[in-house]
Computed example of a mutant assay.
Amino acid sequence: MNTQLETKSQTNKAIKSVSKRNKTIKNILTYAAFVGPALLFFIVIQIIPFFMGVYYSFTSWNGVSSTAEWVGLANYIKIFKNDPGFVNSFLFTTKFMFAAVIISNFIGFGLALLLNAALKSRNLLRTVFFIPNVIGGLLLGFIWQFIFVKGFASIGKMTDLAFFKLPWLGDENTAFWGIVIVFAWQISGYMMVIYIAALQGVDQNLLEAAKIDGASNWTLLTKIIIPLILPAFTICIFLTISMAFKIFDINISLTNGGPFNSTQSVAINIYQEAFQYNRYGLGTAKSILFFIVVAIFTTVQVLATKKREVEA
């Protein structure tokens, strides 16, 4: 009798073990079916080219020949010692990043506050403000190039206003702000959508209670709303920093880095180095340095804003 019970118990354990193993295999296959293709494309499109770029940054490859001569740290030494163009483009891109991040998020958050109110036309306005983000950067740049060169000049003749008579794309300072204006015009609608989603998650009962206690609109905004939606600020600032650093299409279509390379972004500098001057090894070395700097900026920003979230 005891032997039969032991046999039956062992059989049940074996069945459970097989069932558990089958379930585990099924879960693995399910995850592989859904995650596998995306992971494969990510590895092929992102990871492998990244490590290939790291390798080529230590070579003198011209991007065409079948052989790549190993030169070690020569490309990096050349960048730091004898490449003022890259340094200037980096300074321009960093300055542009700070201006673009502040303006884009200020406009995006302002639009979100406005369109989160009970307006009858808010859905239409949300669509209108988001449309620029759908337009491709090159097309957007050429549209605004026409506006700056032809449109503003015509308005300046009719109104005699000095603002419209400025050489918007022909002077270093005005060209810089011209690029900032176009970038903010394109990106602000995208930031607006994120901020609206965050604002809609704020508990209205909390706001009503604060109003009853006598809180002003400014107090509601600074003491309740902004602290509650800090995660949205973290996301939006991260996105705008990365987008501003990587600006290429708007920059190249508006000014092509001019006048006299004064508005040349790092992305344009790397593109010219690798594909116009056929110094692919030097171009990839610049891109690796660029990647490191952008990673440092975004990591510091995320850590700083996340810390504020915890404190709030």
Results as ranks from 00 to 15, higher is better:
N22S: 00
V44Y: 15
M52Q: 15
A33N: 06
G36P: 05
G36K: 09
I25R: 03
T7E: 04
Q10K: 13
F51E: 05
F51Q: 14
V44G: 13
V54N: 10
S9L: 08
K23E: 05
L39P: 02
T7V: 01
T11C: 00
T7A: 07
Q10D: 07
N27L: 03
Y31T: 07
M52I: 15
I28W: 01
N27Y: 04
A14D: 04
E6A: 01
A33K: 01
P37S: 10
L29W: 02
N27P: 00
I28E: 01
T11H: 03
T7K: 09
I25G: 00
I15T: 07
Q46V: 14
I15K: 08
F51R: 12
S17F: 10
I45Y: 09
S19F: 01
G36H: 06
A32W: 07
Q10L: 09
F50M: 12
A14R: 07
K8W: 03
S19G: 00
I45M: 13
K8N: 08
F42G: 10
K13R: 14
K26R: 08
V44I: 15
T30V: 10
V54C: 11
L39Y: 07
F42K: 13
T7Q: 05
A14P: 00
N12E: 08
S19N: 04
I47M: 11
L40N: 09
T7I: 05
T7S: 00
I48L: 14
I28F: 02
S17V: 01
Q46E: 14
Y31P: 01
I15G: 04
Y31R: 05
N22G: 00
K23S: 10
L29V: 05
V54Y: 06
M52F: 13
V44F: 14
N22Y: 02
A38R: 09
I48A: 13
P49T: 14
